[in-house]
């Protein structure tokens, strides 16, 4: 376990490689923008910090996501959005928990079960607060969008994905880790935008979290398994 936190020359090169690669691939794909409350792009490159995290731990994954996002946004000229840099770092960092837990099926089950339970508890707790809001297009008694049960929806997505990928190849199961990392990272970035940019929780959730997490979940499920399988085959060929 201590190895993944040691910053030796290999870890430093992997951190730098992940960040540069994520930056370059983001630069290439940042032009594919999604309809959203802010500038969220369809970014297949998100699999790179997840891959680096899964292979070499949270420090490498976090650095690849954070610095890679900074590099990608700088190359594209999209500006600086620190909460999203942090969110991308968290995606890589959370994916890096997998090697810490030995990437076992049981660990993934436990993580998903704990997350689902936490999300359901959060959803039930939020139901206690039903207030009317005074906003355009919404009359009195309108239930704010952030209270219509988004934690239940996220919990359901995680649960269904875990069931759908259970018993498949380790590469496919790794994709569930990737989706979990995406939900945590994008959720954190969107929710931090509430105090940071003064957004409503509903705008952050439906305008940022939803498009970012759906697009990145899709990218992760499609691209991560073949990437991991190809890497494992290459390792076998090289005798490592």
């Amino acid at each position: 376990m201590s190895n993944v936190f040691r910053l030796d020359s290999r870890a430093i090169v992997r951190m730098a490689s992940g960040a540069a690669l994520y930056g370059v691939f983001s630069w290439v794909t940042n032009i594919l923008l999604l309809p959203s409350a802010s500038l969220i792009s369809l970014r297949p490159a998100i699999v790179i910090p997840i891959f680096f995290g899964l292979q070499w731990g949270p420090v490498v994954g976090f650095f690849a996501g954070l610095v890679g996002n900074l590099i990608g946004d700088t190359l594209t000229g999209m500006g600086f959005f620190p909460m999203w840099d942090l969110g991308n770092g968290i995606v890589g960092g959370v994916a890096g928990i997998a090697p810490l837990l030995g990437r076992s099926r049981r660990a993934l089950d436990l993580v998903v079960a704990a997350s689902v339970a936490a999300l359901v508890a959060l959803g039930l707790w939020m139901q206690r607060f039903t207030t009317a809001i005074d906003a355009p297009f919404a009359g009195p008694g309108f239930v704010p969008a952030e209270q219509v049960g988004w934690p239940f929806a996220v919990a359901a997505v995680l649960f269904v994905l875990r069931l759908a990928f259970r018993g498949r190849s380790p590469a496919a199961e790794a994709a569930v880790w990737g989706v979990f990392a995406v939900l945590v990272g994008m959720g954190t970035a969107a929710l931090l935008d509430v105090p940071y940019n003064g957004m409503k929780v509903s705008v952050a959730l439906f305008g940022e979290f939803l498009p970012a997490s759906v697009a990145n979940t899709f990218n992760t499920l499609v691209l991560l398994p073949p990437l991991i399988r190809a890497y494992e085959r290459a390792l076998i060929r090289r005798g490592r």
């Binding site: 910053l7 430093i12 730098a16 490689s17 540069a20 930056g23 370059v24 610095v67």
Partner: peptide, 16 residues
């Protein structure tokens, strides 16, 4: 690590 990441960018872009 930060410096190395910045230095890698043109090399990786060329590889891409």
């Amino acid at each position: 690590a930060v410096e190395l990441a910045v230095r890698f960018v043109p090399t990786f872009a060329e590889r891409f």
